[in-house]
Simulated scan of single mutants.
Amino acid sequence: MKKELITIVSETLGIPENEVPYDTNLISVGLHSLALMSIAEKLTEKYDRNIKFSALMANPTIEGWEALIKNLIN
């Protein structure tokens, strides 16, 4: 799941995957509200769960999103 999240963020922000941090706030690499809305939509489709913008914004790290999604799918 970590790799999939990194790929989605990389593609959405237009940055190389190796520049997407795992446990650092993604705002530091250019995450903004429009990109986050797009990511929320992609994750909702991918995992067939309602992934809310506010839940992603509460902890804008790959690590946090991974934990959030694992809780939603288990």
Results as ranks from 00 to 15, higher is better:
Asn25Thr: 11
Asn59Tyr: 07
Val9Ser: 02
Asp23Leu: 00
Asp23Tyr: 00
Leu13Arg: 02
Asn71Asp: 14
Pro21Thr: 15
Pro60Leu: 08
Met1Arg: 07
Tyr22Pro: 01
Ala67Gly: 07
Gly30Pro: 08
Leu68His: 11
Gly14Ile: 07
Thr61Asp: 14
Ser54Val: 06
Leu68Gly: 01
Ile69Ala: 03
Ile39Leu: 09
Leu13Ala: 00
Asn74Ala: 09
Leu34Gln: 08
Asn18Leu: 05
Glu19Ala: 09
Ala67Pro: 06
Lys42Val: 00
Asn71Ile: 04
Glu4Asp: 07
Pro21Leu: 10
Asn18Arg: 11
Ser33Cys: 12
Ala58Gln: 10
Tyr47Asn: 04
Leu43Phe: 08
Leu72Lys: 10
Leu36Val: 02
Gly64Ser: 11
Ile69Gln: 02
Ile51Ser: 01
Ile69Trp: 05
Met37Asn: 08
Ile62Ser: 05
Ile39Trp: 02
Val20Thr: 01
Lys3Arg: 05
Ile62Arg: 03
Ala58Gly: 04
Glu19Pro: 06
Leu56Asn: 00
Pro16His: 10
Phe53Ala: 01
Lys52Val: 00
Leu72Tyr: 11
Pro60Gln: 12
Pro21His: 05
Thr44Ala: 08
Glu41Phe: 13
Ser10Lys: 00
His32Glu: 15
Lys46Ser: 11
Thr24Cys: 01
Pro21Lys: 02
Asp23Gln: 06
Thr24Ile: 12
Glu19Arg: 15
Ser33Arg: 10
Glu63Met: 04
Ala35Tyr: 13
Pro16Met: 09
Ile39Phe: 06
Thr7Asn: 13
